[in-house]
Structures are given as C-alpha cells and as structure tokens.
Amino acid sequence: MMNFSKRLRFRVLDERSGVGTGKARSLDALRPGSAARIVELAPSCRGFERRRMMDLGLVPGSVIERAEQAPFGGPIAFRLRGVTMALRPAQANMVAVEEM
C-alpha cells in the first residue's frame, strides 16, 4: 500500500514539466500544519473530478495549508481561501505542490 502510493507520487511529479525543485511533492505528503503552493493537478485527474477540484479552488498558485487527517486512513483536512475542506488521500495525491 505504502509502496504503491509512493510510486504514484513520483509519477505525478515526473509528468510535470519545469518545476522540479527538491521541495516539490504531492498534497497528501505535506506535514500537518505546513503550507504549500499548488503547482498543478495531475494529468490523470480529468473530467468531472478535475472540474470540481478547480471549482473548490485547487488551482495553480493557490496557497493551501494541511490540517489533520481523519482516523482509519480517512480524508485529510485542508485550509484554502479561508475554507476548511477535506479530500480523500487519493485525491490529494493528484495535486502537486511546492512547499513554502
């Protein structure tokens, strides 16, 4: 399980062009309480899902702060544009961010 999500994370980063500093990672890998700037949504995030995530404010350049994760591998809470919202880890994994 762990390995798989790590692999997924690297794939997300590899497919990105340009931004590739050591600080780049996916949203679910952020430490609680730390903030990051969104770089992009993974190309594998498409259609309705992509549209919805952009409507929620997950667009490049936005600053997002990670809060707690729910028990039993549940969703992770984030603060973005003054709103607290939760995404499942698999969804957060599709958002590439740059730590600030």
Binding site: A70, P71, F72, G73, G74, P75, A77, A86, R88
Partner: peptide
C-alpha cells in the same frame, strides 16, 4: 469527516 475512512472502504461516503 471522522467516518469517511471506514465508509470509503465499503464504497460509501462519510
């Protein structure tokens, strides 16, 4: 939020 971890495994929503 608390329950979604359990419910998602069954294909359901928190």
């Amino acid at each position: 939020f608390n329950m979604d971890g359990l419910f998602s495994r069954a294909g359901a929503h928190g």
